[in-house]
Computed example of a mutant assay.
Amino acid sequence: MKYFGWWLWGAVNRLRAKNKGMYGRERTLLMLLHDSRSLTQLARSIKNGYPGSSVRVQSIWVDGTPQAEFKTMAGETKNCEFADLLLIVRYQNSTGQITEERGIALQVKISDKYNALPGGESTKLERALLEDMDRSHKLELYSATSRHKSSFIGSYDFGTGAIKTGLKDVARYTNFPKNKPWFSMGIAPLQVGWPKSYTNKFFSKPIGFVEAIQRLASGKIGRDIFPVGPSDPWAEMVSDLRGSYAGVQMNGYNGQNRINISKMMRYHVGGQFLTSSKGARSKGFWMNCAFADDSSWNVFSSINKRNENIGLDVEGFDPAISMIIITFAEKNPLANQNPES
């Protein structure tokens, strides 16, 4: 998807220039990824795989704060930011009810290598949390860097599952370049991965950002938020962060909210549609749309698609309109059509 390709790298530079370098490269990137328009692009990228559902992508800004306090496997107590962004994919049915939510925390790093983490003290602390946290001890979150008891958000027991160390089930690293070191390799600028081991800085199998979100949506990475069993630490953490940051607008960062969400994206495609053949013939390709409420319309499109069903981006329609079927063809696809065939 172009939006998350090298166009984004240029957009980061342009926004930094506009803001006169007020924010570093990483936070400028976070501003763009956290924007509701970016989230809508992500929702578009995953909607086609889930016919019958409406999809939204939500982002919670967790850069800097909340602060996480945790114990390492060596018994040391440490603290650092929990992550940079927490991305959530949400599915809703035709009545607007949430049927599934799944999320992942992303730690963004500016790196010279697409497949390796950079050095530095902040990276060491973040790796200690994400890869070396002792899950037999509770993880605590605080809304302030001072970690005063008045800023306490909650404590979370991740030690009840099979994973005993780190937070691989809920987190990934995301690399972004300062320059263009891997542009000539044909690799997208945003690369999501996990190190081969705690002592190895190289990712095992890095993937592009959009593919990572698609894997989150399909359940291959990340962790369920809803539905889950009682006392699920990940679901509790997300709920607490939503409660802490709902309606909060950040100072700086273009005044963005701590929590942003995409537009609703729906994709429905199915069998043969039955409509009238009204419409005008002109240069281009016919596009017919049939809706679940039995209304239909024909329009013309110059998009060069032939004889194939594809998804239509639908933003803001009534959830009751739960089916949209579109077909492109060189000629009016409904002309001379037998409605019983």
Rank of each mutant, 00 (worst) to 15 (best):
R223M: 05
K220M: 13
I321T: 06
N304S: 08
I187V: 14
S282G: 14
K220L: 09
M185Y: 14
G166I: 06
K168H: 02
S295F: 13
K168W: 04
P233A: 02
R147N: 06
G154H: 15
I321W: 07
R281H: 11
G243R: 13
Y267K: 03
E126I: 07
S197Y: 11
M250P: 05
S322A: 10
P319W: 06
I46P: 00
E69W: 10
I326A: 10
Y198H: 05
F183G: 03
D294M: 08
K263N: 11
S197W: 02
S151E: 02
A212T: 03
N298V: 12
R25I: 13
G243N: 04
D294P: 00
M1C: 05
Y173P: 12
D132F: 02
S59L: 07
T174S: 13
P51C: 01
S197R: 09
F203K: 09
K263W: 09
P195H: 01
R127M: 06
N304R: 12
L130D: 07
G119V: 07
F82R: 05
F152P: 03
S143L: 08
P319A: 01
W7L: 12
K263H: 14
Y198L: 09
G24S: 01
N48R: 13
M323L: 10
Y245Q: 06
P51R: 05
T174K: 00
T199Y: 07
I187E: 03
G21A: 10
V314D: 00
A116E: 07
R215L: 15
P177R: 04
S38L: 09
A246C: 02
I261A: 07
L85E: 03
D84R: 02
D84A: 08
Y245P: 04
T72Q: 02
D63Y: 03
K283I: 11
N200H: 09
M323I: 08
F273Y: 12
P66F: 11
M31E: 11
W194Y: 02
G311V: 07
V269W: 12
K149W: 13
K138Y: 01
Y91I: 05
I153P: 00
K201S: 14
S111G: 15
G159W: 01
P51N: 06
Y198K: 08
K18T: 13
R25V: 13
I225A: 12
P230F: 03
G271K: 12
F176Y: 11
F209A: 01
N179R: 14
T77Y: 08
T327Q: 10
L141D: 00
A212S: 15
S38W: 04
F70Q: 04
L312F: 11
T77G: 00
G75H: 04
D293F: 05
T72G: 01
E211R: 06
F209C: 10
S36C: 10
E330F: 02
Q337I: 12
S122N: 10
E340T: 15
A246E: 15
Y142F: 15
E131Y: 02
A11D: 14
